[in-house]
Design a protein around this nucleic acid. Structure first.
Length: 264
DNA sequence: ATGGTTGCAGGGCAA
């Protein structure tokens, strides 16, 4: 079962890229972030024509998440027990969507960016991550086979940044408090599948649009697929697909994926 | 390296 995450930075603009990538990569499940679409405008018919069922939680202009499931995937691609948002956490911003596919709980997150350390948005990011943690501890108990994936807006450690001097622990996306929050999520029994399988890999998943950052590989790995204890031993491969980042008018993020073999 | 670009919307904000 191949499960992927992609921040598409506007599904309106990126639908052709998504269609092309789905046809090439054939993931069973895809978690999307930054769809930037109201639900009434979600292109579920086009995605159905591409062979994928969709569930989505969006808003105009900002944020927006969706989960796609391949109709001829395991279990017929049925999407069950859909949960929108973090329960008991009031938030206008559409950043969380969870659903069960083929017995795996899929939790799609678009973590708050946070703008800069010490800002109001940074405080919101840390508060939001606390709420996510509180909810997930119970969610993992209810659904031992769980994947938490999405745009985390946190680079886990020095292997995940092009320049550790610049991307230091006082900076947004790499600050000590953000990494501590990620560590607390990992302490729930969630494992970074990419890093577990590729300990020395220096691949990134996001490159700024400015200054030819992609061409110069000035990137960060902030798009993560975390798998629960029950799924970890079944993970056979994980990677980042840089191809779509090379296409014309790309998202600034590349898809990250994990392949999970038989699991009981 | 901290300017720059992109998306949305139609000016500035968010990333």
């Amino acid at each position: 079962m191949k499960i992927a995450s992609w921040n598409v930075n506007s599904l309106n603009v990126r639908l052709p890229h998504l269609e092309q990538w789905l046809a090439a990569a054939r993931p069973d499940v895809v978690a999307l972030q930054e769809t930037k679409l109201e639900d009434a405008k979600f292109p579920d018919a086009a995605l159905a024509a591409a062979g994928y069922r969709s569930v989505f939680s969006g808003q105009k202009t900002y944020n927006g998440v969706a989960i796609l499931s391949r109709m001829d995937g395991p279990g017929g691609g049925a999407i069950e027990d859909v949960q929108v948002g973090i329960p008991d956490f009031e938030d206008e911003q559409k950043r969380v969507l969870a659903a069960t596919v083929n017995g795996v709980r899929v939790v799609d997150v678009y973590v708050v960016n946070g703008q800069s350390v010490g800002s109001d948005k940074y405080a919101y990011k840390l508060r939001w991550l606390d709420a996510l943690h509180a909810w997930l501890s119970g969610e993992i108990a209810r659904h031992p086979k769980l994947v938490l994936l999405g745009d985390f807006n946190i680079a886990p450690d020095e292997r995940d940044v092009h320049d550790p001097v610049y991307w230091n622990e006082e900076r947004i996306l790499t600050s000590r408090a953000e990494r501590d929050a990620l560590d607390r999520l990992r302490a729930l029994g969630l494992h970074d599948a990419f890093r577990a399988l590729n300990p020395d890999d220096r691949s990134f998943s996001w490159w700024d649009y400015r200054q030819f950052a992609f061409r110069r590989n000035l990137g960060l790995r902030i798009d993560l697929t975390l798998v629960s204890d029950a799924l970890k031993s079944g993970c056979v491969a994980a990677g980042i697909d840089k191809e779509p980042r090379k296409w014309e008018r790309p998202s600034d993020h590349a898809p990250a994926w994990v392949e999970i073999g038989d699991h009981e």
